[in-house]
Design a protein around this nucleic acid. Structure first.
Lengths: 180, 180
DNA sequence: AAAGGCATGTAAGGTGTTACATGATTGT
DNA sequence: ACAATCATGTAACACCTTACATGCCTTT
């Protein structure tokens, strides 16, 4: 199996999979959507596209007409890697780490798999979130009174949002179920 | 003003500010609390402590009795930097970037400032979240139908959680207000 | 013709990750 | 004595950030 790539690579791969695009257009997407958590600066996007190209995950094409521009599209190899990343089971660590990994995968899921898999993913996500919620609740009980006021608030915030996230996932999964 | 430090440095600074601790104990904290979003591996914690020491933000002390261990405590200079980081106004970018910056600051806030400032921070956070919520809602409307099913779900998830976060903040702020 | 946005690129520096390595202390 | 845990450290590598740099195209 190929080596794991950084999140930015998967974000780019997912975007060019949906539709071929140039670096600048991808930067704009990062600036104007909730994907804003990723870089958006030329110093990270262009090197990332170069290494995706070097790895054979995307193909580059110069455009003749108009502006000097390099359009990238995904290759079969890139599509395989993307698919593999999307198919990987959700781990507790991935969810607990709190980087947007699961959401990123969710964003691209429908471009590669059917609604059944999306529903399964949402169910798994909700399940892991339940476990995380239980652990956080336990941790809060253990730390109890030694937390400061604002630390307690931060903790409660984390717990509440974990629960809300799980409920959102279940709600979305139900909608998919009824729509199928 | 001193240069901005990476999030891990502030996390460590906030922890040793509350109570002096050794590297290993700090690692355990990262492993067992919602701070788990930060490293926890020896290869990141120890170098981070070394550079905090080099910068004069923490002081190190070998323990004579028992295990070979190096306990770190915050210095006045470190406390100033921590305070400055906590006092900095919340920016839209900090909130939108979606790394846990605001929550990290919140976690340590009560160790340095009074409840009035905590309340103010929560209010500001809620306000920025409202703006972010409006922008996300607008972005969803703009992208509209060109999103896939799962991408729509991811988008809705982000919007819903942004709102939930704002409500949590307001709820917490109210509790502080009544408790004062 | 000038200005502003489009479009890409690179270099330096710091930082996180992974893997490896060492040794002391405690428990059994 | 042995194992597990405590406790720290380093080296290689890839990555991101920042800053700088270039030039074309479109608009005014």
């Amino acid at each position: 199996m190929p080596a794991a790539r950084p999140p930015l690579d998967y974000a780019l791969l997912g975007l060019v999979n949906k539709q071929p695009a140039a670096g600048y257009a991808l930067r704009l997407i990062f600036q104007t959507t909730p994907l804003g958590m990723y870089s958006d600066s030329p110093g990270s996007i262009y090197p990332a596209l170069h290494r995706l190209h070097r790895l054979g995950l995307v193909a580059a094409a110069r455009e003749r007409a108009g502006r000097r521009r390099r359009t990238y599209r995904i290759t079969p190899k890139g599509r395989r890697l993307l698919r593999q990343w999307l198919d990987a089971p959700l781990t507790y660590e991935e969810v607990a780490s709190g980087n947007g990994g699961p959401e990123l995968r969710l964003a691209f899921l429908s471009d590669c798999v059917g609604p059944a898999r999306v529903r399964e993913f949402l169910g798994a996500y909700a399940g892991v979130l339940d476990r995380l919620h239980a652990d956080l609740t336990r941790a809060r009980a253990a730390m109890g009174a030694q937390l400061s006021t604002s630390a307690t608030i931060a903790m409660e915030l984390g717990i509440t949002l974990t629960r809300a996230r799980a409920e959102c996932c279940r709600g979305a999964a139900r909608q998919i179920r009824t729509a199928t």
